[in-house]
Design a protein around this nucleic acid. Structure first.
Lengths: 196, 196
DNA sequence: GTCTATAGCGAGATAGAC
DNA sequence: GTCTATCTCGCTATAGAC
């Protein structure tokens, strides 16, 4: 992607995050990119095209990041730990983009929406499969796997909503806390496997 | 509040939920309310006034609901259980309004925003205080109380994002699952107090 | 590849009759 | 309290020069 397009995208991310997609005008994106609004249309077909670019590339980068972090880890407990760490870390590092992903899907036309949701569901399924597998094999506490996976994923995703880059805790510290919360609390069999 | 105003409010809730606040036109609200858009301005000063009404009354009703559910319960464990149950149940019952509350605050002017946030922070503080109190008194597992309270609140709030009124589980069933997840997993001291 | 200029539309809100 | 009619503005997007 060329430099100008990157600048436009960055400006759009900041504005969509701060003012929401529909409340953001192309003229504002242009202003923050130091170009004229007509020039944006050389790089993007439409305002929605910018949104879709942001959503889709963020989702793909998240997927790629998790896959890298899980590579080579066999043990289900460790896989789950790595997955939570990666998810939370990404949601701290890419706060704005993931918050847009969570709230601006209604700005997409049907076909773009479908394409994004396929990508997102595939990502979430990785988590759900790990959790179901861990429960089935007796490594994690039994329970409603679907609900537990929702609880875990939404809790970890919501970090993007309260994390402060200059706050008391770093993204890595929060990732560690969540890793523990998820694996040794939410998923841990109450006593049986503590020493096993 | 008179009948027409209620109809307008209901229509706005459905549209803000489905299409977002900024993407919703006054003409659409009017159409769904079976009146002319000019007539809305007899009941509300502006579009933002409708949004503020929705946000503020929902927040106050949530606060009132929790207070009713907690009344007379002394034991911290049981208070926490009741609070989680109430919070999750409300987020199932009032799904649309709470989702608007989570994503459309950027539609408020500074003073309205301030008023809402005061109300919301007061609500969240009830939870945080219970958690801190429980940890300090040794009833709940020690840990970063602030982060744990974020984890719990965001997880419970996010139920509004995936709950399906006609789905497999009722609001009451989900409330029960979350009550257990929070109190016997996230907050429970790993072994010490199980039989105490 | 970026510009100026503008088309074309729909938005929020108001005026004033009934 | 609801209506019709309309004001005014700012939006997305396009046309066409350079």
């Amino acid at each position: 992607m060329n430099a100008t397009k990157e600048i436009i995208k960055k400006a759009a991310i900041n504005l969509f995050y701060k003012k929401s997609y529909f409340a953001t005008a192309m003229s504002s994106i242009a202003l923050d990119s130091s170009i004229q609004k007509a020039s944006i249309y050389y790089h993007y077909d439409s305002k929605e095209d910018i949104l879709f670019d942001i959503l889709m590339t963020t989702m793909k980068e998240l997927t790629a990041y998790i896959e890298t972090c899980l590579k080579g880890i066999e043990n289900i407990d460790n896989r789950m730990r790595a997955a939570v760490r990666a998810h939370v870390k990404f949601h701290c590092d890419r706060q704005k983009e993931v918050l847009i992903s969570d709230s601006e899907l209604r700005g997409l036309t049907a076909s773009n929406y479908k394409a994004f949701v396929i990508q997102r569901d595939a990502y979430e399924k990785k988590f759900q499969d790990m959790i179901i597998q861990g429960i089935d094999q007796g490594y994690f506490a039994s329970g409603d796997a679907k609900v537990i996976s929702y609880a875990i994923l939404t809790m970890c995703t919501a970090v993007a909503g309260w994390f402060k880059p200059k706050g008391r805790l770093s993204g890595n510290q929060i990732s560690s806390i969540y890793e523990e919360l998820v694996v040794t609390k939410l998923l841990r069999e109450s006593s049986r496997r503590d020493i096993a």
